[in-house]
Design a protein around this nucleic acid. Sequence first.
RNA 1: GGAGAGGUGGCCGAGUGGUCGAAGGCGCAGCACUGGAAAUGCUGUAUAGGGGCAACUCUAUCGAGGGUUCGAAUCCCUCCCUCUCCGCCA
Length: 426
Amino acid sequence: MLDQRLLRDNPELICEQLGRRGMTLDLTGLQLMARQERDLEEQRSNLQAEGNRIGKEVGLKIKGGAAPNSPEVQALRDEGNRIKQQVAVLEEEEKALEAKLREELLTLPNLPSPDAPDGRSEEDNVEIKRWGSPRGKEDWLEEHWQIAERLGLFETERSVRIAQSRFVTLMGQGARLERALINFMLDLHGGKGYREVLPPILVNSASLTGSGQLPKFAEESFRCADDDLWLTPTAEVPVTSLHRGEVIPADQLPLKYVAYTPCFRREAGSYGRDTRGLIRLHQFNKVELYWFVAPDQSAEAHQQITADAEAVLEALELPYRKIELCTGDMGFSATRTYDLEVWLPGAGAYREISSCSVCGDFQARRSAIRMKDGKTTQLLHTLNGSGLAVGRTMAALLENGQQIDGSIKLPAALVPYFGAESIAAA
RNA sequence: GGAGAGGUGGCCGAGUGGUCGAAGGCGCAGCACUGGAAAUGCUGUAUAGGGGCAACUCUAUCGAGGGUUCGAAUCCCUCCCUCUCCGCCA
């Protein structure tokens, strides 16, 4: 959520910066609303001050011996009642205005960082670096879903029976590999000072609002209609809310968490895309990195959290490239985002496997998460990054590890977790 | 799900209608004392929003929301949460 003061004082700046995301908007109405709200607040509190003064005077007179029903006291009581009525009217107006204002503000995305490259779509994203040597496209290379089918690593048809399309049931070595990857990633990050979290994956509306998914993206999440609970689309949601409403002492920052959760997404509007395999599912596993930091640390933290995600790919010997998203392609809450794209030799393409964003104080304001340094309390900054999406990592391992004999060679780092050096041809 | 108890400041804890944003204690910070420290003493120590260059000041907040009243931490209603016991359950 954006700062109301900024809206009151400098809405032009907001328009200009959101313009970089490709939005055209006119905030004069909202600005007016914000100013009206402040005026109402002032009027109301002045009236309340007068009411408080009268209340005290009545108390003093009665204490001083005046009869509670004397004309003098009665006059004050009448005045008090009159003020009370006026306050009630103003309060109602103010509340309505405030609610409307908040509702509108919640739909505005974060302002992009000055460092984020301008652009309209993913076409304009900027490649920062490449790592590893991608194997060339050879005729015999298969796509990961072909490999998985051949090796019996998952069930797709039967998953439709259990749930519906875009669900997968991992089987045998496939299930084992998924589990190995989760543990490997958690251990890798845990060894670097991340505290492991296993949060609820049903989250309430306040949590989804706090991290930015609501109110605008309700159609992207699964909802349990009877309970005000939703299936979390990413661990970012519960982990943000882990500290919702808190004031955190500065010397405890940064707080770094690593959370494994299943993630659930309705993938509305992606019909026909990535329909085979592990790339785009309604339910997938992800190991998420999340930082709460002091504002002056967040730029550096963004480099670090991205490096921590990259370290997983490097440990797994998976070639990747790092790109920076342009303003037109960035997510709702982000001010700046790096995506990591892993090389899939079977598909012959780089595919997103991690997204690392710094959100400034945007989520912190929505979630009321502050830090206290000495006497000053201020909103802190939040960052999130996938470290990594587990299903896509499995896809990458299958495609990159393909041997001519049909088996899959696994990277050395994973062997202790998987318990074998390769997945043998069936 | 049933029965009972309870939710007050960083923490403990007093407070059943009137200068209560809230006694007292602990903790924390500053000052004094000390060679230094402990102990002791004094002072200060919530959050949000509004106004003011500032000193400062106004409003709201005692789980949340509503009500009674000139006036509510205190009385009434609804909800939420925590704890204990019972039931159910992995």
